[in-house]
Nucleic acid binder design. Structure first.
Length: 804
DNA sequence: AGCACGCCGACT
DNA sequence: GTCGGCGTGCTC
């Protein structure tokens, strides 16, 4: 068993397989599957994951592993096979799968150096490069390149006086502080204490501390606790009584934060009914998927909390996924309040180091609950008792980069392995999940009423076309304005929601209709007000707003579309007395600003909270009695079969913010398409009818959940190349699938050109096609050479959420 | 992905 | 004749 199979950190088709390495004698007992190691690979030195130990290899001239990068395996066997499964499911490289499962801090960083060979001094080098090595015998490759002396250095390298070395570095260091512990036992300490001079009071205090309990303590903290200066401790170190050491400490993103402890709430009869099967499932150690379908405000979170409590009591662990958790500090509060230090939190707002530390807490079994966004599904728990996915329908659970996985699928896979339940919770379940629940694949649990039986808010739909006909050209309908004034008088609060998705501001000429587009992509440029620039969101191209129209020379060129800033200005014009808090990317980019704004709002420092998607969920403030949706239909017309579903979900979600407590709530939805069923039914909060209606449409058009879909997108600098490759792929896929499958294409992608690359796609709709995966893999293999050399790109997404 | 090797054009 | 362009193929 002195050979290790290693997946190397080279994301390419040809290297997507294990490479065998000899384990040097000194490391034989140390190297284990799941460890990261550094290995020689060609002339380089890179990181790899040991996936297997074996005693023989078919490859003759094995190289040796250089060194392990971990003390113990970083991927358990379960995780290794999960990574395997993930790469197969998503047709991505194994190395990408492993890296997606670990915090980014563990991804290796590579540095290339030029170093003086042993026994060579700068004088031995040719004069032109001598200067480079005067300060240090090692310079980075980049420095060498910048010095413009690469040629001379390469000559030196071939003569052997300098050599090129590669280093593998960790991205983030563990944070360490100096600590001390006693170098003798209690008896010896007591003896030593006797021998101290009478005036060494402080030293005696320190020794007393260690007599009581000899555990390593951070010097800084100890000094504070005993109210002494660190010099006293240093003195004892010098005398050899105490021994100095380093201790790993965690960066705690919630340091200095007190979370008020909460107790389990009394459940309503409805909640009792819903939680019973879950608790039973936990008790029976049974793998089962529950769809917890509960209207907004029905108390889903309390069910999560009590289920988790049961899991903890059984000595097991829980994963809770929440969409974009940094955006719901309230949620963190609820979990930390109930489970205190048992909770690790992982979200995008943390630094790489903080994320790594939270991950370490999980790995070292110091916590038993993790609350986090998508990637928290890979939390390295080994004794999972439950997985909860809140707001199950959220599209952010699908990763759009490789590996293109959906956290829901991973959750179900992990739960099968751990024999534990999964709870998918939502007020507006995805059609896929609801259909499965109806078929009995998932266990449906319903909470049709709000807690304390509060009524769902009254919803009124305003036809903005009517408003326009009536001469109101502002973005606020008469009714909304009326109600806004009313709230301000009554000192109640309003949430104004601006649906930005799918309608960004663009620059248009009012005379000829010219719209400023990106020169590299077939898409209009987005207007950014703060720097008066127009920017392409796909390639990063940027230019300033032209003073006159490029097409017709008119000066009537202005931006269209509504940003939150614009709404704020308008609001100020019509309601100068209103105090407004605006929440968007601009105002919440700074760390903690999100929470601060919400706190301000909660404390009543504003009448109106104005924002985009980020205020759609999680807000639960008693004083909100009015919710206004300024333009409900902006994403209804996107080229996406899920646009109705998303509109319905969003509107229902937003409406749910109003009247959650004693005061009744009201919702105003402004729209240009009031007749659309997704808007009408969201006003009635009638998910069941929406479900029926939408399912009919999906059935007719053969979309999920009736069919699965897979999308292949081909891009190339030359239009014809993209078309012809897509053409070949389409007919190949067609030939490999059954008659029931529908293969559409080649068609131009909804965004036909990005960064000067033409994009064509092939859409596959299918029910059961065991041959699809291998067909797609063969395609990727087939075009391997062209992908590598010819600048061809082929992206495969099974179960895409974005069809662009 | 790098990197070396190797085969052709334009230069001191 | 050589330097260096980047196509081709390999990395245990």
């Amino acid at each position: 068993m002195n050979i290790a199979s290693v997946i190397v950190d080279v994301p390419a088709k040809q290297t997507d397989r294990p490479f065998d390495y000899l384990i040097p004698d000194s490391l034989v007992e140390i190297i284990k599957p799941g460890m990261r190691v550094t290995v020689p690979f060609g002339p380089r030195k890179i990181q790899g994951f040991v996936v297997e130990l074996k005693s023989a290899s078919s490859f003759k001239q094995l190289k040796k592993i250089i060194e392990p990068m971990d003390l113990s395996p970083i991927l358990s066997n379960e995780m290794l096979s999960l990574g395997d499964w993930l790469s197969k499911q998503t047709l991505s490289y194994k190395i990408s799968a492993y890296q997606a499962m670990l915090p980014a801090a563990l991804k290796a960083k590579y540095e290339k150096y030029i170093k003086l060979s042993a026994g060579t001094s700068p004088e031995n080098l040719s004069p032109e490069v001598q200067a480079l090595f005067l300060k240090s015998s090692k310079i980075t490759w980049d420095e060498a390149k910048a010095s413009d002396k690469l040629h001379a250095l390469q000559k030196e390298a071939s003569s052997g006086s300098v050599e090129i070395v590669y280093e593998v570095k960790e991205r983030v260091k563990k944070k360490k502080l100096k600590s001390v512990y006693a170098g003798m036992n209690a008896e010896e300490l007591k003896e030593y204490r006797q021998s101290l001079s009478a005036q060494a009071r402080k030293q005696a205090d320190v020794i007393d501390y260690f007599i009581k309990d000899n555990k390593p303590s951070i010097i800084r903290d100890l000094a504070k606790e005993l109210n002494i200066s660190s010099a006293v401790i240093k003195e004892l170190v010098k005398k050899g009584v105490l021994i100095e050491d380093e201790m790993e400490i965690y960066r705690d993103p919630f340091e200095n934060r007190q979370f008020e402890r909460t107790e389990a709430l009394l459940l309503t009869a409805e909640q009792e009914n819903a939680i019973a099967p879950i608790l039973q499932s936990i008790e029976d150690i049974r793998n089962e998927v529950f769809l917890l379908y509960g209207v907004t405000g029905s108390g889903k979170t309390e069910i999560y909390l009590q289920s988790i409590q049961k899991v903890i009591n059984a000595g097991k662990e829980a994963i809770v996924l929440v969409p974009e958790i940094s955006l719901t500090p309230q949620m963190v509060k609820r979990f930390k309040g109930r489970f205190g230090n048992e909770v690790a939190v992982m979200h995008s707002g943390l630094s790489a180091g903080e994320k790594y530390d939270e991950w370490r807490k999980i790995q070292r079994k110091e916590v038993s609950v993790v609350v986090g966004a998508r990637s928290a599904i890979f939390a390295p728990f080994e004794n999972l008792g439950i997985i909860i996915i809140d707001e199950e329908h959220e599209t952010s659970y699908k990763q759009e980069e490789n590996p293109k996985y959906h956290a829901r699928d991973v959750a179900i896979k992990r739960a099968e392995g751990s024999n534990c339940p999964v709870i998918l919770g939502s007020a507006t379940p995805s059609l896929e999940s609801f259909a499965r629940a109806k078929k009995g694949v998932y266990h449906l649990l319903s909470l049709p009423k709000r807690m304390n039986n509060q009524a769902l808010p009254a919803v009124e739909i305003i036809d903005m076309r009517e408003e326009l006909r009536g001469g109101n050209r502002s973005m606020f309908s008469v009714v909304l304005l009326e109600k806004l004034k009313e709230r301000i008088e009554k000192k109640e609060q309003t949430v104004l929601f601006l649906n930005k998705r799918g309608h960004s501001s663009f620059v248009m000429c009012r005379d000829c209709g010219y719209v400023a587009g990106c020169p590299n992509c077939d898409i209009s440029l987005t207007y950014h007000r703060y720097n008066q620039q127009m920017k392409c969101h796909y390639c990063g191209y940027e230019e300033s707003v032209p003073a006159i129209c490029r097409e017709c020379g008119s000066e009537h060129i202005r931006y269209f579309g509504t940003g939150t800033q614009k709404v704020e200005e308008e609001l100020h014009k019509v309601l100068p007395e209103a105090r407004v808090i605006r929440m968007d990317i601009d105002t919440t980019s700074r760390k903690g600003s999100h929470e601060k704004l919400l706190d301000q709002f909660q404390e009543g420092h504003a009448d109106i909270l104005l924002g985009t998607q980020m205020i759609a969920k999680g807000l639960d403030f008693p004083n909100i009695t009015l919710v206004g949706v300024l333009s409900a239909d902006t994403m209804l017309h996107l080229p996406d079969f899920r646009s109705s579903e998303k509109t319905f979900q969003l509107l229902t979600q937003v409406s749910g913010r109003a009247g959650r407590h004693e005061l009744p709530g009201e919702v105003i939805i402004q729209t240009y398409s009031p007749e659309h069923y997704s808007i009408g039914l969201s006003a009635l909060q009638d998910f069941d009818r929406f479900y029926e209606q939408e399912m009919m449409i999906r059935k007719v058009h053969k979309y999920p959940p009736f069919y699965y879909i897979a999308l292949v997108t081909v891009s190339h600098e030359q239009l014809m190349k993209s078309v012809s490759v897509t053409e070949k792929i389409t007919s190949y896929v067609q030939s490999k699938l059954s008659k029931d499958a529908i293969v559409l294409g080649p068609v131009a992608s909804p965004i036909p050109r990005i960064n000067n690359r033409y994009r064509y796609q092939c859409l596959i709709k299918y029910k059961r096609e065991p041959g699809l995966q291998s067909a797609l893999k063969i395609i990727l293999d087939q075009y391997q050479q062209e992908i590598a050399s010819n600048g061809l790109q082929i992206a495969v997404d099974v179960n895409p959420y974005i069809l662009m």
